[in-house]
Amino acid sequence: MNDIIVIGAGIAGLVCAQQLSQAGYSVLVVEKSRGLGGRVATRRLHETLADHGACYLKPKGELFTSLVELLCDRQILKVWTDQVHEFHPDSGLFTPDLAYRYVAPGGMSAIAKFLAQNLQILLNQRVTEINLTGNKTWRLTLESSNEVLTAKALVVAIPAPQALTLLTPLGEGVLGGEFLTNLSAVEFSACISAIAGYPASSHLIPDWQAISFIDDAILGWIGLDSSKRLQPQQPVFVLHSSAKFAQQHLESPDLQPLGQQMLQSAAETLAIPGLTTPEWLQVHRWRYAFPSIPWSEPILSAASPLPLVCCGDWCGGHLVEGAMLSGIAASGEINNYLSQLLLPGVNFFKVFSE
């Protein structure tokens, strides 16, 4: 039996697991996907990389800034740009602020791989059922093998709607109070991302790295993703849709026409006709892209007989930095329930620099 099981290998789950593991607990991370990082995601395709989830890091707080500095020292991150333009329907392009944005030349998922060091992780394993046993343990059933895992404490570090589906069968009788009501109040906006690659001979290189679209019916973002790479072989753009466009087409069985529509819109808006004719195009659906109605606190705890804590970027904020702080808060809550060991706290990543 494990001391703690963490469901979800996004940034919040990995940070929480590192905190508890470094303190001395036995921790197992269970992730339904084949990769780490959640929406800090990278695709490898056509002999190149593309970040189709989180596009960059823009650190604000001291803790996250320290982590970014460490990742830069390790050459995992680099400064990408200090300008992300905005496009307004009435006024066109302008630059609202100058602030460094950091990216990973090896793909943004490299951040998650760094945070996952020394952790015990099960990938491609979906938890289908959670029960509270008479032996005072959490009992988790896995979909692929019907294998059963047990733990003294549980951290659920996945989007709130997915957590709600998984935890609702336990009922308020086990979870207590208004836990399920609070969890169900969290809402997400969807996003459709399109990755488009162009022939090297096209010379399709604009004089900007990224543009956010304000109040656009179709587009939310476009970035020259290949400008993040050390030796780009061809121009690669990543586009994110607006929340409205994604919601309208969320259940579409064929995403390719949607990606093409996004390219057409960007080409017309930015007067770059070549965007409409990519050499290849891959489109991805993010059902839970951005928390539109987040939970107001860093974590959401159940009043259950055994500790159960939810965390993620939907707790208190919707950026990678917020996910990290939520993971740290979740580890503290779990530790208070259990052995009250000494957590590494703000120094949790120093073990990686030794």
Rank of each mutant, 00 (worst) to 15 (best):
I272H: 05
K58M: 11
E178V: 08
L338D: 07
A160V: 04
D215K: 14
S242A: 12
G10I: 02
A54M: 04
G322C: 04
L281G: 06
N335D: 13
W286F: 15
R74S: 12
K136F: 09
P273F: 07
V29C: 11
D225K: 05
T150D: 10
L258V: 09
D73W: 07
F352D: 10
S227L: 14
E251T: 12
T81C: 13
M262P: 03
L343G: 07
S184G: 15
K32Y: 02
T65E: 08
V236M: 10
S304R: 02
S353A: 13
L342T: 15
Q22P: 00
S145H: 09
N182D: 15
L154P: 04
G176A: 10
N131I: 01
A99D: 11
R44C: 09
C191K: 06
D215P: 00
I4Y: 01
R43S: 13
F179V: 11
R101K: 14
G322Q: 01
Q260H: 13
D51I: 07
S296R: 13
S339Q: 15
N335R: 09
V283Y: 10
N124T: 06
H52P: 00
M262D: 03
M108L: 14
S33A: 14
L154W: 06
F352E: 10
L258W: 06
G345K: 12
T168K: 14
A23T: 10
E297W: 04
N336W: 07
E268R: 13
L170H: 02
R34P: 01
A185D: 14
I299M: 02
V27G: 02
I130E: 00
L167I: 05
T165A: 11
S292D: 05
Q125I: 00
S109N: 12
E297A: 15
